[in-house]
Amino acid sequence: MLKIVEIDNLTVQYPDVKALDNVSFEVNQGDFLGIIGPNGAGKSTLFDAMLGLNTKYKGTIKFFGEDIRKSKNYLKEIGYVPQKPIFEKNFPVTVTDVVRMGLRNETDENKIDEVLQQLWMHELRNRIIGELSGGQQQRVFIAKALITNPKILILDEPVTGIDQQSIDLFYSILRELNSKQKITIIWSSHDLDAVNQLANHVACLNRTLFFHGESEKFFSNDELVKQYSEASMQEHMHHH
């Protein structure tokens, strides 16, 4: 099995808190990895380090066997879908304009239509992005991420604030991308049920990694599920 990502002893220290503490795990080609953990567990911190947005970490991160401190070439193989893409609501770009931003090469223009069709967004291609619903916007950002034929798709809690119907469609798209197009998916989520249904591997993160392995092993271990649920429940109560 080809190792795509190798994370070794990753530690991120913020001034007041250790956001990640000695996190190590690997992702193999074709994996559908669900990263779960309560708010503040370090999921976004982990992604920032993996995407080269934060270089102040200890430990090593390798993509395709190469240390990301040495080369940024791995970014070409990554499609990234952020949690809630921030932009001005009246930003004058159409769906096509946004997807085009993902292109690295001007000659790939034909691909835009192809990807939009794949995501059932073709009819909305001339609409302004800010006019679309949260679910539609998220599909546009998936299209933008897919336009370069990435080997890995990284999604940071992509369904926050989206209606259930759009979430179901979104999940079926992810499943198809992983099973048919063999795209490796790394996805962080709050939704334990969705992770159970979609992911074949689970990483359970709360500053340290307290489980990483096949999702069946996680979900068949009542003790682990209970621990996770309690941790996130505490977090939930803490926030209210």
Binding site: G52, K72, L75, I86, M101, G102, L103
Partner: peptide, 18 residues
């Protein structure tokens, strides 16, 4: 054009796109 528009639209995503 594409780089300027992309980094105006969303800096973080533009960075990840290299």
């Amino acid at each position: 054009y594409r780089q300027i528009l992309y980094s105006t639209f969303n800096e973080e995503q533009a960075k990840v796109s290299g």
